[in-house]
Amino acid sequence: MSSPGDSRRTIARRRETALFLLAVPALLLLGIIFAWPVLRLLAMSVEDGTLANFEKATLDELYLYVLFDSVKIAAMVMAICLVVAYPVAFWLSRAGRWGVALGMFALLLPFWTSVLVRTYAWLVLLGRNGVVNRWLRDAGLIEAPLPLLHNTSGVLIGMVHVLLPYMVFPIYASLLRIDPDLSRAAEGLGAPAWRSFLRVTFPLSLPGVSAGCALVFVLSLGFFITPALLGGGRVIMVSMLIEQQVREFLDWPFAAALSTVLLVATLAIYALIGRITRGARHA
């Protein structure tokens, strides 16, 4: 026997189910394009029934060194992006309509050219006889050309250029979300602008900083065209080694093991970034 109460609960449950069904296509898509390949990757890396591939990927000095180096470069790119992007985002969040339009245009402009073209442009700008060095020399600031290219600094410049928008936008968004009355309140209560920024605006923008850092860091780890071209061969990223294994040696199981190690390292650092920014917020 069903009481009226039962059928009401049924109707309520049915509504919840309907809502859940709306999310099913997205979940399926995520499952298919993300979870499944990751699982396949894992399976492939232990295809031979042993952990030999992982042993090589995690114990061999070469791969450890490259992984460490990649993480170091990604962290440096992230740090530089943060320092450059924050003021830009801050200015954008306070700028008028025309300022925002101009800023967005300037930030998005590079997106309309390919990474390869942008990277080659840097070759022209940063070379020994490139535009930058020529200007500096003509201005009498330097005598010998600065080594801006074919080393770590070239890689950093190129990667920061490509990834900067990924840092600016999350920070900009989080700054926009902050109630403008909060900094007014701080100033009204006696804070000079810089203290109002340090105590109120900056801590509240940390979610954006965290998202931007995670995004830039993760994307940096996957880069290989830019470091290959601008690093002059002196900078090796894990992604370059993975690409070598996949394309040149067809050693997919080992590539899968390397990818898995990279994935785990990425997730670990991602978690770390989240923890640090959460901690800083309530400090």
């Binding site: 009355d181 007014r184 309140a185 009204g188 006696g190 000079p192 309530h282």
Partner: peptide, 20 residues
Amino acid sequence: APPRRRDVGMVFQNYALFPH
């Protein structure tokens, strides 16, 4: 004079408490 030099206490419409 800037707000911080006025010694004025203000309660905002939405209170403007620092959420963090």
